[in-house]
Design a protein around this nucleic acid. Sequence first.
DNA 1: TCTAATGTCTCTAGTAACTATAGCTTCAAG
DNA 2: CTTGAAGCTATAGTTACTAGAGACATTAGA
Lengths: 146, 146
Amino acid sequence: MLTIGKLGASAGVKVPTIRYYEQIGLLPEAERSSGNQRLYGQKALERLAFIRHARDLGFTLEAIRDLLSLSDNPDQPCAAADAIAKAQLLEVESRLARLTALKGELERMIVQCAGGRIADCRVIEILGDHSLCATDHRHPRGDETS
Amino acid sequence: MLTIGKLGASAGVKVPTIRYYEQIGLLPEAERSSGNQRLYGQKALERLAFIRHARDLGFTLEAIRDLLSLSDNPDQPCAAADAIAKAQLLEVESRLARLTALKGELERMIVQCAGGRIADCRVIEILGDHSLCATDHRHPRGDETS
DNA sequence: TCTAATGTCTCTAGTAACTATAGCTTCAAG
DNA sequence: CTTGAAGCTATAGTTACTAGAGACATTAGA
């Protein structure tokens, strides 16, 4: 059995974050020791690693909740889960497209900032001037985690 | 002179966000009309477009504050701006690699779901198993905006 | 010119996904 | 058997906004 600290170290998640995940119901309530300390087994470690990796890939906790509900009922017919999986795929593809555009912009910025002074460097200019953009990112803000 | 609404529409930034940027000092306090409404000129539009664009590329407001202060004193070497952009690029490339892998898994899951069960899908396994990770992301969490 | 609709004002509170602090208890090593 | 690290709960703070309330300003149409 792992204490919360060992669990966090193993999964690469901070201790308060684990307690937070329990609080919001992403992790089940942990078993407790005689002294009221949380104890975790292998299953909890796997679940936490899953969450950690999915967060790392930019999924929201809500999306992760959906993915976990898939893994929690693996005997469900796939028809029921198909919509969730497809929604995730759409999200991933959109995220990929935006990241790819972003990468191009950053590369262009770095090439043009070839060791001069800021006055001669176009990084600032590129960020200020929409017409220099290779890609269209005029969609409204506030959607990077969605 | 632009009202806050026109400014927001031109730059692709919502009105409350502009007021928020003023509040935290990213935008200077705006001139006011006789009726106390904010009025903006071309300089404000450029500055806001800069901020919008940089946010779109994933820079934090702190990084943007730095970039703005660089652009306000353009007589230094641009290594600082370059370093900020390069750090962003590294992060973006790492995310791209991992997302691409996940996209493949999600696509395969949907194909496999044609007749099977969730238990046969490897998405959960991929996200749960650290050894299947293509890249190393063992760094502590909570740094995606830095 | 009056009026209705829309835009703007301030202020407060809420969101996601944590992170930090305070003040206490429990556990493990020397 | 003590002492220092690690754990507990609970609350408040963080970033980058977003939403709502209630009041004032501006503008287009009758």
